[in-house]
Design a protein around this nucleic acid. Sequence first.
DNA 1: AGGGCCATGTAACCTGTTACATGATTGA
DNA 2: TCAATCATGTAACAGGTTACATGGCCCT
Lengths: 198, 198
Amino acid sequence: MSLPYAVLGILTYSPMTGYNLGKIFNKSVNYSWTASLSQIYRELGILEKKGYVLSDIQQQDDKPNKKIYHITNDGKRAFDEWLTDFPEFFSAPKRDEFTLRLFFGSKVGAVELIKQFKRFIEERQNFKQMMVEGKKTLTEMIKNAKKNETELSIQQDEIFWHFIVKRALMTNQMLIQWAKECITELEAMLSQEKQRSE
Amino acid sequence: MSLPYAVLGILTYSPMTGYNLGKIFNKSVNYSWTASLSQIYRELGILEKKGYVLSDIQQQDDKPNKKIYHITNDGKRAFDEWLTDFPEFFSAPKRDEFTLRLFFGSKVGAVELIKQFKRFIEERQNFKQMMVEGKKTLTEMIKNAKKNETELSIQQDEIFWHFIVKRALMTNQMLIQWAKECITELEAMLSQEKQRSE
DNA sequence: AGGGCCATGTAACCTGTTACATGATTGA
DNA sequence: TCAATCATGTAACAGGTTACATGGCCCT
């Protein structure tokens, strides 16, 4: 539902190849949206049929030829329409394997779950570090993609990217806090059980 | 990937109809997992072919007949295997329309975005209220589904459901905080712009 | 010599959404 | 009387994942 607009939106910054688009997507995985390369290639094909993008082939001798996509006026119009048409409800359906397993936590056992919570915290701490480095690369990548333009327009975007990064970091911090509290409660439960059996 | 196990997991509590399963799923939407009724009916069909569940038809004169599904030993084994086989990474791919639009925030404009952030906060505050009431119903529903059993086994589950509810509430609170901070930053930006243009 | 990056996609499959079809009971 | 709840599903479609296929350059 959003993928075509995400693709169009990226192309408003600069014409680029499907491969390049994939790179930007996969950098923004950590922030808000994921898409695989094959998905992007397929989507670009659909968008071209609709007349929302056009492509030019750029010959290259040393590397495979590039197919550079750029957005058309029709595409821009479609994107703008989507952009300003905010959905009535914001919350997306959640599907989270870990929480699902937690739902059946009594069948897993507290000892095992404490282990898993600790792994969970570790993963989150690694993510935190990645984010600090990751923010730079996204900005740089878009700068690279539009070498010929001024940097002024990117500057305007930075506050919004900062919002997204902030959200990701806050979410992360909150989840670490949550996991720690769960561990504490589970350990309390375990020591109570021990006392009762003694 | 997880849907079949979610279905099997619910059926370990008690045999029930597809309709009933759907109810439980839709109550747990707010917590961790969503599935539509049609998805559940299809999945039950697949699970029956695999021999993970079996069904008995219960005649009813006043209402449509019930098809009551129960889990088989094979099904239990498959569920247990999944349950104890935690994935290497916990984080699920994120697809969030609101954050995606934020990514292109400079094209939306600060004034419009402040409006949207306020709607976002409102939705979250409504959600908060729903959760407080919602927790009871899930517990009650499972109690209803297994009238004939003791309440002891549900008691063991409650700590884990409490973890899930807690996570949802913490996420919610954090998002409200985030949105408020974003509004503050956007308003600061707007007043700066005004000053410059005067 | 082997893996990673650049660069293109296709095809099969799995999962999720939406719309349709049917029909009785119960409460506002 | 009209909507909601109980109860079953099917069919078409949309979106996402995984595997396959090709091939040269660059760095270790």
